[in-house]
């Protein structure tokens, strides 16, 4: 790849920024949640600590959360752009960010149990490439911690236990069940990413894809937008609160997408994103120069 060092420095800066500085839509949502908790409550104390943590991380140029998580890179590239070279230079930037302490040594060889010192290994980082009619590269990075990843769920409707049928009321039942069973374990208040439909694999992927949306936006599909609002409102009544210690702020947002499905399948895939919602993006020229930040 030409301009290798330019690319490396732009991608490194993306990783650094993602790790230490939360996007403003997330920070604003946490501030709103903070003011909604009564003074002197545990919920307010948790959110105050969280807000202090966000400021400290930014000022001290240090990771918001010690769990670097899964590094999910989504690229939209011009037609014909060399994605192999792009993956290679991204791996170099990841190794550098790990060496410099912006990322934790967070990748384990599943069979041997050995820790990988660079976070570059089979399946890490995660890449998604899409060729588009465009002249720049759009790259987005989400860092998703293990605690929140473990909190994910997948339902197959109809579900007898929940009395959930193959309709949006059934989806609502799944989501309320998910919120109650996850409690604070994904580091609440977080965001639910949901996919209705798809298969077991694409459903999970599309659910995670929802995290590229801003916390305060609404689905363009009317019925989904209404369901998003309703679940968010109902989550407050469940009283799970920050870190599951009780309170109103159970979720910051609900993002629901839909994919087509097979006649025999009706999956509801739920992904959980913690309050440390590390999401950044950038437009980069084909020569590797940083054009502008997204979010």
């Amino acid at each position: 790849m030409k301009n290798h060092s330019q690319w490396e420095s732009s991608l490194f800066e993306l990783i650094r920024r993602t790790s230490v500085d939360l996007p403003s839509d997330v920070e604003q949502a946490i501030k709103r949640a903070y003011t909604a908790e009564p003074g002197g409550s545990r919920g307010r104390w948790v959110l105050e600590t969280i807000l202090e943590n966000i400021r400290k991380a930014r000022n001290q140029d240090a990771p918001i959360c010690q769990d670097t998580g899964t590094l999910c890179f989504s690229f939209q590239v011009p037609v014909g752009f060399d994605t192999n070279a792009l993956a290679a230079v991204t791996r170099v930037a990841v190794a550098k960010a790990t060496r410099m302490g912006y990322l934790r040594q967070n990748t384990i060889d599943t069979l041997s149990g050995e820790s990988c010192p660079t976070n570059v290994a089979h399946g890490s980082p995660v890449f998604r490439f899409e060729q588009c009619a465009r002249s720049t590269v759009d790259v987005r990075l989400i860092m998703k911690g293990g605690g929140s990843e473990n909190a994910g769920r997948q339902y197959s409707l109809p579900d007898d236990r929940l009395g959930a049928g193959r309709d949006l009321e059934g989806v609502r039942k799944c989501l309320l069940d998910a919120i109650v069973s996850i409690q604070g374990n994904g580091c609440s208040p977080g965001v639910l990413g949901v996919c209705v439909g798809g298969d077991r694999c694409t459903g999970c992927e599309h659910a995670k894809h929802q995290f590229l949306r801003k916390v305060d936006d609404r689905s363009e599909v009317k019925v989904l937008a209404r369901l998003e609002e309703r679940i968010l409102k109902e989550s407050r009544l469940l009283g799970v609160g920050p870190m599951g210690l009780g309170g109103n702020a159970t979720l910051l947002g609900v993002k629901i997408g839909a994919l087509s499905r097979l006649p025999a399948s009706f999956f509801v895939s739920v992904s959980y994103m913690c309050w440390a919602f590390r999401r950044r993006g950038a437009l980069i020229t084909t020569k590797g120069g940083l054009k502008r930040w997204l979010y």
Partner: peptide
């Protein structure tokens, strides 16, 4: 004792 998950900087301090 339950600490604040994700508050890596406050707690590192």
């Amino acid at each position: 004792l339950h600490a604040v998950g994700g508050a890596a900087q406050v707690l590192a301090d």
